[in-house]
């Protein structure tokens, strides 16, 4: 009984430590981020073991052509062209690889309706280097995203 109690005590302490220790893992990606063009804000959240990012703010939310909220009109799939951009999940399926890198995901560019392979590197707690690429990383472009917080 005493042996079991020690095991349980150790588990309890470990679980407490896990609960309150500073987050140095993949969850640092969670938050609201702004791409360099400032046209959108993207909320990254964790779903299961993977990370996803959705558009939660648009600088110009209304489509000047239709006078209605912008939709994914450049999507090559006609069925998706009426999906609102607000709430659109543009980052998908990222897993944390360690060493401040999230990979195996994709990024969607609503301006041209293309989906690119993507790797995310965190250069510091408030800055992400998001590289979309075609096939190999060399054929790509890096965008720098900044972390946002609610104004004090």
């Amino acid at each position: 009984m005493k042996k079991l109690s020690f095991v349980l005590l150790f588990s309890f302490v470990a679980a407490l430590f896990w609960s309150f220790a500073p987050n140095t893992g993949g969850d640092r990606l969670i938050g609201v981020w702004e791409p360099s063009n400032g046209r959108a804000r993207v909320k990254i959240e964790k779903i299961g073991a993977k990370y996803y990012g959705k558009i939660v703010w648009l600088k110009e939310p209304i489509d000047p052509a239709t006078k209605k909220p912008k939709t994914d009109k450049n999507n090559p799939d006609p069925d998706l062209q009426k999906v609102p951009l607000m709430g659109y999940r543009m980052l998908k399926d990222f897993t944390y690889k360690g060493d401040d890198e999230w990979a195996d995901g994709t990024i969607y560019d609503a301006l041209n309706g293309s989906t690119y392979s993507c790797v995310i590197k965190m250069s510091n707690e408030n800055t992400l280097n998001i590289r979309g690429y075609i096939g190999v990383s060399a054929l790509g472009r890096t965008d720098v995203w900044k972390r946002l917080v609610v104004k004090k």
């Binding site: 900044k146 946002l148 609610v150 104004k151």
Partner: peptide
């Protein structure tokens, strides 16, 4: 909620 935000850094 995301209208009134600023850079963290």
């Amino acid at each position: 909620l995301y209208d009134n935000v600023e850079y963290s850094a």
